[in-house]
Design a protein around this nucleic acid. Structure first.
Length: 386
DNA sequence: AAGTCTAAAATCC
DNA sequence: TGGATTTTAGACT
């Protein structure tokens, strides 16, 4: 993760006030009769699969133009995002299962960045049981919304209810909570002690030809079958490939993650990262790295907000990690949420880094379903070696 | 070579 | 209306 800081604080007391029409990105999912929500209108055409030409903007929606002056429109356009409702455009609204996934899995060839581990439970510190018939097939809904702004380089695809919340998400949530090894990692950054305010765990290894046994400081863990199957479906749907699965558990509203970008150094340029939500919904905030003064426009850039709900998937791609930071802020009433992310690490350091900050030195926790809490358990194995 | 926490201001309801 | 919640700036070893 790469965090950046605003070192350009002005000497005055001026504060950038959030616009009322900040109106949260999630607004595009709300009913249309919410008059406070105004749809962005124009999108540069060269990124919209074959539609339009040159710089001529395409009008996508214009259902409340009477309220907005032209100048106001243009300013708003610079500050906010553009939305292409791909589901509407291409009428994608399908249910599917992973029945059609072709075995064998995982792939064993060098074509895929996730190299087959020596065993299905390689380096697991505890037994993760095989998935039963109830956990397969998983039911998916495919209804992508493209969120793209060529000025601010926000580049997302949002799949609401990707994992069907009625048929699949709860079972998967329970299985992961019950069976994964969880950690509360402590580490130092710039001489300061950090207590990671969430539970974490990680599986997979980088795409280098380093054998699974070829890591000293950390022991890469095989991706459990349920996560492997999810990963594979996400790959199929998004036309991407991954070799890491990071899982976070935000146990209460006190658990959080600060604004950060996912570092490009070991993920390569413009990484695609898929993020899945299970359980209680949480706000997901995106803030431009130069939100106070965008270099292209000289204007402020609004923070965007999604309320990620049970089963949702959001794909971050393109320059999003370069130009934007994201966070899960503390929320007073929040309950347990699991977040699964899939990424592709392309250098050996990725493996060391991910195990360092998501497993750490190995203070293993297990979920106690009866007591509804995490318990630290003794484990001689598993931690990252110093 | 992975930030978190707190106080104060702003906003919500 | 004002207590609760969220947002923001800044400290921190």
């Amino acid at each position: 993760m790469k965090r950046s800081f605003d070192l350009t604080s002005s000497s005055t007391n001026t504060v950038t006030l959030p616009s009322k029409r900040q109106a949260s990105l999630a607004g595009f999912l709300k009913p249309k009769n919410d008059s406070t929500i105004r749809s962005p209108r124009k999108v540069k055409s060269d990124h919209v699969s074959g539609i339009g030409k040159e710089d001529k903007p395409i009008i996508l929606e214009d259902d409340d133009e009477d309220e907005v002056s032209k100048q106001e429109q243009e300013e708003e356009e610079l500050k906010s995002i553009s939305i292409i409702d791909k589901g509407k455009a291409k009428a994608i609204d399908t249910k599917s299962t992973d029945d059609d996934l072709v075995e064998p899995w995982p792939p064993s060839g060098i074509d895929h960045p996730y190299h087959k581990p020596p065993t299905k439970d390689y380096n697991h510190p505890i037994v993760i049981p095989p998935i039963n018939d109830e956990l397969k097939p998983i039911h998916f809904n495919l209804n992508p919304k493209v969120i793209y702004n060529p000025i601010t380089d926000l580049d997302l695809v949002y799949y609401k209810n990707f994992i069907d919340k009625n048929l699949s998400s709860k079972k998967i949530m329970d299985f992961l909570l019950d069976n994964l090894p969880w950690y509360r990692v402590k580490y130092k950054v710039r001489g300061i002690d950090i207590n990671t305010p969430r539970f974490t765990t990680v599986f997979g290894k980088d795409s280098t030809q380093t054998p699974w046994s070829g890591y000293q400081k950390c022991k890469p863990r095989a991706i459990p079958e349920i996560l492997e199957r999810l990963m594979r479906k996400v790959e199929q749907v998004t036309n991407s490939q991954f070799n890491f699965c990071l899982v976070n558990y935000y146990s209460t509203g006190e658990d959080s993650i600060s604004y950060h970008s996912d570092s490009e150094s070991f993920l390569g340029l413009n990484p695609t990262i898929a993020s899945l939500t299970l359980g209680y919904s949480r706000d997901f905030l995106l803030r431009h790295v130069n939100y106070k003064n965008h270099p292209k426009t000289g204007k402020s850039v609004n923070t965007e907000k999604f309320n990620l709900e049970d089963g949702d998937m959001i794909l971050m791609k393109g320059k999003t990690q370069h130009e934007w930071q994201h966070s899960i802020p503390k929320r007073s009433k929040a309950k347990g949420r699991i977040n699964i992310t899939f990424r592709k690490g392309i250098v050996k350091y990725a493996t060391e880094n991910y195990y360092n900050y998501n497993v750490g030195k190995g203070n293993l926790h297990k979920w106690n379903r009866e007591k509804q809490l995490m318990e630290e358990v003794d484990s001689s194995d598993g931690g990252v070696k110093t």
